[in-house]
């Protein structure tokens, strides 16, 4: 298999979230985390789920990933029910989930090694390609602790993209980064998404981030987590995080979030 064939890979997947509910049973009480959530995501769409902390958006992402099971309803990826995590739906986590016992290259290779049908030389080539894509080919041999926060998340992105998943799930991946680094990554993620069409579900509490990245924004409210509104963002790409249009969209989202009874207002600016 050539690098080009491997990179072409399978097309992005269609996702259906079908009446998903989830309860967390704790010692004293049962928390209703998600209440009857339904939506569809088309192939290659960029969805951002936004909502205040505690609205269950990360739980929803875990269910789509297959890391958690819904108590009611189901998630379909290309009409196949999701029961387990799998290589076709990779997750990029909030905190850096990079493995400290491997160097940068080893981390990107981790998922590739688990992918059958490739020779090791091909895996190395693919890993190099993606490190180049995120601009870190010079840091292949670096150790994780030597990288800055932004570089770590770039490696995490390369690691998630390398096995060529059909869906990329991103759980507040830039929340812990400083504003400058984050704005640079918004540009990068849009550029990479243009090149490597994936179905992306991106979870955040930052409305401006949502407006900047999304094709559609799903707005959630807490206790219990409900899907309240869906907004389309029809701005041309690449979008500038600091543009007035983004700010206007963000303001609209903020107003909507404030309107939910009992909900904390989400942050309008980082």
């Amino acid at each position: 298999m050539s690098l080009q064939e491997e990179l072409r890979g399978p097309p992005p997947a269609k996702l259906i979230v079908d009446h998903v509910s989830k309860w967390f049973r704790q010692k004293r009480q049962t928390v209703h985390a998600l209440d009857d959530i339904s939506f569809e995501v088309s192939e290659g769409e960029f969805i951002v789920i936004v909502g205040p902390s505690g609205c269950g958006k990360s739980t929803l992402l875990d269910i789509i990933a297959g890391l958690e099971q819904p108590d009611k309803g189901q998630v379909l990826a290309d009409n196949q029910p999701v029961h387990n995590p799998g290589r076709h739906r990779l997750v990029m986590f909030q905190e850096s989930a990079l493995f400290p016992w491997l160097n940068v290259f080893g981390n990107v290779m981790f998922g590739l090694r688990l992918k059958p049908g490739l020779r090791n030389s091909e895996r190395r080539e693919v890993a190099k390609f993606f490190l180049h894509l995120v601009g870190l080919e010079k840091f292949m041999e670096a150790n994780v602790h030597e990288l800055s926060g932004g570089m770590k998340q770039r490696v995490a992105l390369a690691r998630a993209l390398a096995p060529n998943p059909r869906v990329l799930l991103m759980d507040e991946p830039f929340a812990a980064l400083d504003a400058m680094t984050r704005e640079q990554l918004y540009g990068d993620i849009q550029r990479i998404w243009e090149k490597r069409r994936k179905t992306i579900i991106f979870v955040t509490h930052n409305v401006r981030e949502a407006a900047c990245l999304a094709d559609r924004v799903m707005v959630m409210s807490p206790t219990p987590g409900r899907l309240r509104d869906i907004f389309e963002v029809k701005l041309p790409r690449p979008r500038d995080f600091n543009s007035i249009e983004i700010a206007q969209h963000a303001a609209k989202l903020t107003a909507v979030l404030r309107g939910y009874k009992g909900a904390e207002p989400a942050m309008a600016t980082p």
């Binding site: 995590p85 799998g86 290589r87």
Partner: peptide, 8 residues
Amino acid sequence: RAARTMGS
């Protein structure tokens, strides 16, 4: 968790 999503 990260390893599980990668098919480990």
